[in-house]
Amino acid sequence: MTPKPGGAESAAPVDPEVCELRLYVAGQTPKSVTALANLKSFCEQHLAGKYRIEVIDLLEQPQLARGDQILAIPTLVRRLPSPMRKIIGDLSNTERVLVGLDLRARS
């Protein structure tokens, strides 16, 4: 069980002020394109109006991989609210993304 701010239990969604998300990609690969599309539709559905997405292409800025400990591509990093969360993969499984972003309790 991951503790939720506000004492919310079970499947109740957290209501963050604003969700700062960073998506790390390496060029326009199919996986990256899929991940970005999945992320956008996910955010519209679950975080409408309360999210910011920044896409970082490591082919252009390789030096940024180190700071967020990026290994896998694509990686989604939730920088805010803290603690930092990481989800790797093309984000095709909405349930896992909800869990990964602490929007749903881990089972």
Partner: peptide, 15 residues
């Protein structure tokens, strides 16, 4: 780390 769907280790290669 939460894993969902396809990924590769390009981040490691790039680093």
């Amino acid at each position: 780390i939460e894993e969902t769907g396809e990924y590769d280790l390009d981040g490691l290669f790039i680093r």
